[in-house]
Design a protein around this nucleic acid. Structure first.
Lengths: 412, 412
DNA sequence: ATTCTTAACCAAGTATCCTAAGTAAGTCAA
DNA sequence: TTGACTTACTTAGGATACTTGGTTAAGAAT
């Protein structure tokens, strides 16, 4: 365990400015941080000694001495992001700049026990680190992201999915012990949102939300680079907002929930109900993996099947209404669509949702509101998980405990 | 103008702890703030020299020296809150503890010009300060709260309501000059939310949202004592979230907006449509003031008129769905109902909305979710405006500019 | 070359916190 | 009642992370 760095907040601010700019000079760091040039000198020197920053050349003169350009020393540290759901688990290793250096997908939880699932994940993480040639000592930690509700501080799920054994199972402690690395747990949609902010080129001044659609629909919001956390850190249950007061009752107790109109299960069910369509696109009677089945409908829609297209467009229109409510409530100027379902169907969803925002976003007179597809594609949540570890280690904006360890981060 | 106080952040933390506790000792301040007892000694002494805190006695011994009890010196500073809408303007003067010391209501904007309206408000503020015997030198400033969208930093509305002349009119600069006091502008629903947190006895650990219903429906969210601001500071347009994808088109561009189902105008229109009801409750043909008309329906409902009750209950059920979406998206554990419409009809609305939250709030397994009526009644927004000034002057949690002046606060 | 401008660094000062060692004022037990 | 103990608060000194102001380095302009 390394000693806690001094002035963690200032280091975090500087690192974040470097990350956002890519390449930057000390003068610009001073302007951007509000600190004086002298302080920047000291902080940058510390960060260079730690190997986090490197000087990469000189800028053009603006009438005097040329500025020394600084970048993240991206190969000096790595983090791992693990996105877990029932059908698949995506794993990525990212460098200090948040760029993926290697990725893979393995089977999801299925009906396996947490222990068996985590064993498989740990083995794959070990394998990826070896294959990428990443020194284990330079790995800061692992971000495990999955569906909510969850207790992040305890590192457990508060949801008996996929099997009752998962409720309260010590995911973080177990994976941490298996890998001998720090592990943090977070919501997949929140991770996708912060990941998009960090590596997706989102304007730091923007307030953006993420709609993450995998097996279900989740949401995340980033304001000024920070995740909206709400009260119990399980915010933005966008899959279960009601869009029809008289709609059918949902298992959540609400009526007319978004997921029942627009979720992948609703899409698959709608496809099954169209005579001939299941046979045409290979949708067998027995319920397969949700994402596999959804992708059959999505592929058919992209390929021009009118029935499939109508079903996807119906889903997109409801997502558009949800996105509009989402944007008007959180005052967003950007809605990012992320998750495996948008891998194939994204080009159908994006323009419809974007158009819905143009129609009714309240803050549109103040600034433009857009909907875009995630830059990280299906790996958005996994990349986000890795980014969450980067953030927690490098830019500790939360108040630190006296011993320098993060409150939201469990070191085995 | 007084010199900016030293260590503004620490002072703010201490003042906030004192405010939340009412009466507190230095030992508890040290525990609550995380600062050492020595630092608390220094900070409390500074604050006592400034007259903001006073020692008020001693607590029971817990085995040693008795604790010296400290309170806000509530008579040492005052702020003014002005809530403005079309039909009425509520004005309150609150002391340092946020308690109202005097209040009044005058006519709202109506169709008057901004200048004429502000003249009337300024005269009434002057009059209230004199009648309450408040020394002008102890008045920190004025919080002007009204509907959005608005540009808080510029101190102008971005909405041509009630007349086009209001769009972009320099409200803050004008009122500030009239009164020779600092003025800040904010959203009425946000103000009601923070006001409820400050003086309504809301648990500081809770995450609460406010549904503010006056002429329209607005929302505000407070997380850990801070307002959710979103991107352009016009968040939580809850009146225009869609609850029926196939509903009638709203002027905002969306369909099936909450306001068209549950807003006061919808209630009045529904009452007009019931044969006999308008005559029975004195609802004349010509549209009067919205709040006056709404109150006729609400009073009849409270008095037992079945038709009026059904209309209010219909409105409440839709507000309940909206509150549930609100709570699930923002992860709230408390929804406060505020605004003049709840003055009479609150006892009908509250149980229905509360029941809706019990039915479907996602975080309910983690902690209870409640709906309550505002403790400040119809003055919630005005009290909130006054509290916003207290906060900005006393607990500057925002980063301060080098000259010590707040970024969000315009000193004429 | 000389002078100006800009970048980066260094030294000393300051604000704000901490730790450590007190003093003050109470309880408790013999 | 006296001495030991506990708790509340204060004082003194020191650490940290910033600041201000001056210096050196490296370029452009004349």
């Amino acid at each position: 365990m390394t000693a806690p760095p001094s002035r963690p907040r200032t280091r975090g601010v500087v690192l974040d400015l470097v990350r956002a700019a890519g390449t930057i000079s000390r003068v610009e760091l001073a302007q951007g941080s509000g600190l004086t040039a002298a302080t920047i000198t000291h902080v940058v020197r510390e960060l260079m000694v730690d190997g986090l920053l490197i000087e990469v050349g000189q800028g053009e003169s603006t009438g005097g001495k040329r500025r020394t350009l600084i970048e993240l020393n991206s190969g000096s540290r790595y983090t791992v992001g693990v996105q877990l759901d029932r059908s698949t688990s995506s794993i990525v290793v990212v460098d200090l700049a948040g760029r993926p250096v290697i990725r893979s997908s393995i089977g999801g939880a299925g009906n396996r026990s947490p222990a068996a699932t985590l064993e498989a994940i740990a083995a794959e993480v070990d394998s990826l680190l070896v294959r990428a040639g990443v020194d284990r000592g330079s790995v800061l930690g692992v971000g495990l992201v999955t569906h909510g509700p969850q207790d992040r501080a305890a590192g457990v799920l508060l949801n008996p999915q996929p099997t009752p054994e998962w409720y309260g199972y010590p995911l973080v402690a177990t994976l941490s012990k298996m890998l001998d690395l720090p592990v943090l747990l977070d919501n997949d949609a929140s991770a996708a949102a912060i990941g998009e902010y960090w590596v997706g080129g989102v304007d730091p001044a923007s307030t953006h939300g993420c709609i993450y659609m995998a097996g279900g629909i989740g949401g995340g919001v980033v304001v000024e680079g920070e995740l909206y956390r709400g009260g119990t850190s399980n915010p933005v249950e966008i899959g279960h907002i009601s869009l029809d007061a008289g709609g059918i009752e949902c298992s959540c107790g609400n009526r007319g929930c978004l997921e029942n109109f627009a979720g992948p299960l609703a899409v698959i069910q709608a496809a099954r109900a169209v005579p001939g369509l299941p046979d045409r696109i290979g949708l067998t009677e027995a319920a397969q993996d949700i994402l596999v089945d959804f992708d059959k409908v999505a592929s058919a829609a992209i390929a021009g099947d009118a029935d499939a297209l109508a079903i996807i467009e119906h889903s997109a229109r409801y997502l558009g209404i949800a996105a509009l409510n989402f944007a008007n409530l959180f005052d967003l100027d950007l809605v990012v669509l992320a998750g495996p379902t948008f891998g194939t169907a994204g080009p159908i969803y994006q323009p419809i949702i974007h158009a819905a925002l143009q129609r009714g976003a309240f803050n549109r007179p103040v600034r433009p509101v857009r909907a875009v597809l995630s830059a990280s594609g299906a790996d958005a949540a996994a990349v986000g998980g890795a980014v969450l570890v980067l953030r927690s280690e490098l830019t500790p904006l939360q108040r630190l405990r006296p011993d320098g360890r993060s409150l939201t981060y469990q070191h085995w």
